[in-house]
């Protein structure tokens, strides 16, 4: 192939590929981003949980005495000490899931219940998910680690 045509050919091919990739990326970003809220943010932003269609993440503390087991399902309440959200989860809980622990739940709302597909907590006792820590500090309900 003549170098002149080759260059043209390569350029067209690159433009096409990058264009297609950009399109894919934009579409994927639109559909697959999961936003993080604390219960309070959630109520402030959406008012009613019925308005929330997308998959989201909710972070906060597990409310004391709120954990209940019904069959294989675990029901508990996430709180940021201002507002609360009831979470239903039927998977297996992480090692350090317990009352008072900072956690993040990912899932969707269904009839005002948050049906979680995943519950995240880290393996360290002192660990607080960074989003949760920041949100709680903002609301002045948690001061952070002693050190």
């Amino acid at each position: 192939m003549n170098p002149k045509y080759r260059r043209l050919f390569i350029t067209i091919f690159i433009v096409l590929t990058l264009g297609l990739a950009t399109k894919l990326i934009l579409m994927a970003l639109e559909d697959n981003i999961v936003y993080f809220y604390t219960p309070n943010d959630l109520i402030e932003k959406f008012g009613d949980t019925q308005n929330i269609q997308n998959k989201i993440r909710i972070g906060g503390l597990v409310l004391e005495n709120s954990i209940k087991k019904v069959d294989k399902k675990t029901i508990f309440i996430i709180t940021d000490k201002k507002k609360e959200v009831k979470v239903v989860f039927d998977g297996s809980l992480p090692d350090l899931f317990r009352e008072g622990q900072g956690i993040v739940a990912e899932g969707m709302f269904k009839n005002n219940n948050f049906i979680a597909s995943e519950v995240l907590a880290k393996h360290d006792e002192n660990y607080m998910p960074p989003e949760v820590a920041e949100a709680l500090k903002k609301n002045n309900v948690w001061k952070g680690d002693a050190d």
Binding site: L24, D31, N32, F36, E131
Partner: peptide, 16 residues
Amino acid sequence: NKVSIGPAYYNATFAP
């Protein structure tokens, strides 16, 4: 804004 991007994004971009 705190967001997370999970496997769904990569399945829609990286895989194809």
